[in-house]
Simulated assay, not measured.
Amino acid sequence: MTSLSVNINKIAVLRNSRGHELPDPVVAARVAIEAGCGGITVHPRPDQRHIRVDDVARVAAILGHVEYNIEGNPFAPPRGSYPGYLDLVRGARPAQATLVPDGDGQLTSDHGFDLARDAARLAPLVRELKTLGCRVSLFVDADVADVERAAEIGADRIELYTEPYAVAFASGDASRALADCVRTAERARACGLGVNAGHDLNQQNLGALKQAIPFLAEVSIGHALIGEALYAGLAPTVRAYLHILASS
């Protein structure tokens, strides 16, 4: 069964827009958990534009049986009250650490690691995260040429960057983009890696991806899910995604 991890960053964006404490990402996490999701994802950035440092610990305290996935750039240095990605993970001890090569200039994550270039730098960080008890996932492009390097440096999973697939799906012809996802997922599985997926997945395109890659371990969904929840409610929207995963 593919797990649904609900990314609550957008709840924090809405809260931060007013400079107060509502809506509270922790309350949103509780609602998603009660609706049946398998995990909660946060992606705290050094500029704290959405999830803040204090949110990371507050979410960790209420998770109970579901998994915590903390995304972030492990190369981003400490800044102000942001202690650095590894220190956040040390404090929260999530089930999964998803490493993403994003910078402040990016509105959102928009590419995966260049494993030929980045593997040597990532290897000691992967080892350290695993000593903390974290499963380690690396964010990669769906057409990455050397996915096997993720296994060589000790990662447990990859996360397929699925925005190109989502864009192609919306245009009416996702065959090539979907084939890239499938090819990389199968290569990853062949070298012992689990396969996650995320970015711009929604209720329209998720089923086709799951059918093409039935062994997906996890999908992390935030932007579309929170947007749809504005109309349908958060709990019903989480349940709708779970239904798609179960029936695809």
Results as ranks from 00 to 15, higher is better:
I158R: 00
A177G: 03
L216K: 04
L209P: 00
L178R: 11
A150K: 12
I158A: 00
N69L: 06
I158E: 00
L201T: 08
V182A: 10
E128V: 08
A155N: 05
L234I: 04
H223K: 06
A155V: 01
I8D: 00
G154H: 04
I40W: 13
R149T: 13
G91Q: 11
D141E: 12
R117E: 15
E163Q: 11
D114Q: 12
T162A: 08
A179G: 12
P214K: 14
R157L: 13
V66S: 03
A60P: 00
P44D: 07
D146Y: 02
K210D: 02
V167G: 02
V26M: 07
S247P: 02
G84F: 08
D141T: 15
L122M: 09
F215D: 15
A217C: 10
H20T: 10
A123V: 08
A235I: 08
R121Y: 06
R52Y: 03
A119M: 09
Q48N: 09
E21N: 07
L115N: 05
V100T: 07
H223G: 06
L206A: 05
H43Y: 11
L4P: 01
G172I: 11
E67M: 10
S175Y: 04
L132H: 05
L22C: 07
A188W: 07
E128H: 11
C37E: 03
E163T: 08
D114R: 14
I11L: 12
A123T: 11
A145C: 09
A188S: 13
Q203G: 06
L129C: 04
Y241K: 08
S220E: 04
D54F: 11
V42H: 00
D146F: 05
H111G: 00
H199P: 03
A232Q: 14
P214I: 12
N73S: 10
C181E: 08
N9W: 09
S137T: 14
G91A: 15
L193M: 12
A177W: 01
S3G: 06
G84E: 09
V140W: 03
D143V: 09
A120Y: 05
E186P: 04
T162C: 12
D156H: 07
V13P: 01
A197Q: 01
V195S: 06
V136R: 12
A28L: 09
I158Y: 00
V167M: 12
T2F: 01
Y241I: 02
P94L: 11
E21A: 14
K210G: 00
I213Q: 03
I213F: 02
C134D: 09
A28K: 01
L122Q: 05
N205H: 08
D141C: 11
Y161W: 14
P46N: 12
F75V: 00
D180F: 07
Y165A: 03
D114F: 10
K10Q: 15
R127H: 14
V144T: 14
N9E: 13
A92D: 02
P164I: 06
Y82A: 10
S17N: 10
D118F: 12
L63S: 12
G133C: 10
G222R: 01
E163K: 11
S17K: 08
V144P: 03
R157H: 15
A145D: 14
A170N: 05
L86W: 04
D146N: 15
H111Y: 07
P23D: 13
L99M: 15
I33C: 11
N69H: 10
L209V: 09
V89H: 01
P46K: 15
A190W: 13
S81D: 14
G233F: 10
R15Q: 08
A142M: 12
V31N: 10
V195K: 07
